[in-house]
Amino acid sequence: MGCNKKALGALIGSVFMAGATQVLAGSSASMMANTCAGCHGTNGQSAGPASPNLAGISESYFNDSMKAFKEGTRPATIMDRIAKGYSDEQIETMATFFAGQPVYKAMVPHDAAKAKAGAETYDKSCAKCHDEGGSLPGDDAGILAGQWLPWLEYSMADFKAGNREMPKKMAKQVEKLSDAEIEAVLHYFAGQK
């Protein structure tokens, strides 16, 4: 009776029209980041044994890594192929999701004696850039603390083989270290709680 159907129709119509002109913003950060979880764990907390944790890594480290995978400048098994599916803007959106997660250190099986020996090497050669046991996202050097050991080993093997370029400061330090010292320091990072 008192319902003005015409006015109601016009109201609904105007709402639809307004909506129709909006440009869709693309997939949300969580929508895209959740596709990573099948290999990197829910919210980037990996259950191992090799896939690295992504939780808490800085936006710049995530962006640099994904863009390097996409361009083929970082050795990869599968990440080069997956990274090619995203625009730089999509990568930057995903980066905000993982940077927003608390840093996650997994309980990684490692050799305690090697980790202990590695602590000395760490203090001497790594701590300047990988501060607080490699657990600070602000370093923009990736989170090394509580990372899965096989991934740390693969990464170092790629650096040593010259398949992945080391920052100059890192190259200078790595050059001075024996294989045993490097192995020990990787156990040290893996063992960080």
Binding site: A37, G38, C39, G41, A47, G48, P49, S51, T77, I78
Partner: peptide, 23 residues
């Protein structure tokens, strides 16, 4: 793909398995 990279893929296959189960 080299044997070394395919060996890594095996480790990543097991990582896939552990993570997708938990996820």
């Amino acid at each position: 793909s080299s044997p070394e990279m395919r060996a890594r893929e095996e480790e990543y296959a097991y990582s896939w398995f552990a993570n997708i189960k938990k996820d």
